[in-house]
Design a protein around this nucleic acid. Structure first.
Lengths: 241, 241
DNA sequence: CCGGCTTTGTGCAAACATTCACAAAAGCGT
DNA sequence: ACGCTTTTGTGAATGTTTGCACAAAGCCGG
């Protein structure tokens, strides 16, 4: 796995930033399709997706030349092309490890089961929740992990365990053949090359928001000076040791 | 608001990519601190945070010169500096709108209340869940939103409503003075300039994973040809119209 | 006090991403 | 068939992020 040949216009060559936006375009396209819209311009689609139109066009140009100059894009056709590029013309069985509050919420989450993904199993190490019905499934014991993965040909795992068990769960997933992992546990997972990990971390997102909020507050105060009215903002507290 | 003076080492000038990594460093530092580690080198911290050490050093250099050459960084001191930079020496009251499965899971989520953030209220528009106790709080009706925001000086809102109501909830939050929004609903929110939105989107993350998984599968098959054993992977299905 | 060892902080170049701006393509009305 | 209008697809310019590689800084043992 060294030099990358990069075939003509082949599967690769799509920049990561573009890949991350394709799902957003896809969602906008679904909305348009349900709406009955037949064609859409890059400008309209860009607005719906919350990006600028030049970016959208460049993004789409990586998939091929699917628009018609002077007209725009055929919604159905583009929908299909984007779906195909993302691998959503296939059905991806997913296993969720951890049936706590968040794990159960995810299993119930509609958008999960919707397009392209299906929860093959919901696992937990705690014997007291094993057997509980959740979202039309029954929570199985983590011991079943390897068997479930093999039986359903699962290649995507979602980790929703406490931080302490996340790495060992991850190791077992990888050993069983899972190559894509979505991690909700607040830890940095260690995986061998060839395994793809994405993380979703609530407190990181909040901290990033706090950073900008603080910056705004600082600038505002500096510019406006001491304020008269009650200002929306945080209360100062001591920082723990 | 034209040329930015950029004070000596002032609040701004920190690249967005760096800001997004600071919380990761912070977490690693907390782990080291609990561990009793007094100093840490950029290399060690980088490994713990899952980045390369040059990047870590450059990131930290944006906050100031807090290391000692030949030694490394004082864990406690750096912890404090990063916390301060992120605005976590303050306490940020947060309001969660939507008390469905996910909203309740978030309210219960430990990492939420942990450092710097506190759930001021959990709101829902559905009268049948109002009054329910969740994580030491009682679900309040959405009508209370403006009052709660003013009373607790909330500047961060978390939207966990269905997609259909997300935009209107967002508008109300903004009108009430909230300037930072974390959006779990699968829609692109429209906000005026000066309001900061971050989104967390399960199905987008899954779709990105699917893209890479598909690419791997394609390459593998191209390289290895038809496979003998049972291959972990998705089952082909027809794409809906 | 000095030389050797370690590790930071940063200049610089390469890689990646965004945005502008426009020529080339396609439809449409006459 | 032709010129007008619209809108795509993309070179080129600009901005951002990464990573190398090394000088400057600090500790330590003698």
């Amino acid at each position: 796995m060294s030099h990358r040949p990069v075939s003509a216009n082949g599967s690769h060559g799509i920049p990561e930033a573009t890949v991350a936006r394709l799902p957003v375009y896809l969602r906008a396209l679904y909305a348009l399709a349900e709406n009955g819209t037949a064609t859409v311009s890059s400008e309209e689609l860009a607005v719906a997706a919350g990006v600028n139109s030049a970016k959208l066009r460049k993004d789409l140009s990586h998939l091929g030349s699917y628009g018609t100059r002077g007209v725009g894009y055929d919604v159905q056709y583009l929908l299909y092309q984007v779906s195909r590029e993302l691998g959503l013309t296939q059905d991806w069985p997913v296993v969720i490890i951890g049936a706590g509050n968040l794990g159960r919420a995810l299993a119930n989450y509609g958008g999960f089961a919707s397009r392209g993904f299906r929860v093959a199993a919901l696992l937990d190490a705690d014997a007291s929740v094993v057997g509980t019905p959740v979202a039309g499934l029954v929570v199985q014991h983590s011991d079943e992990m390897e068997a479930v993965i093999r039986r359903h040909r699962v290649s995507i795992g979602v980790i929703v365990t406490p931080a302490t068990s996340a790495q060992s769960v991850c190791d077992r997933l990888v050993a069983a053949g899972v190559t894509s992992i979505l991690n909700f546990a607040p830890v940095v997972l260690n995986v061998p090359a060839g395994v793809d990990v994405r993380k979703v971390d609530l407190s990181i997102e909040l901290q990033i928001l706090a950073f900008h909020a603080q910056r705004r507050a600082t600038v505002d105060n500096a510019v406006a000076g001491p304020v008269a009215g009650p200002v929306v903002g945080p209360v100062v507290r001591a920082v723990g040791t």
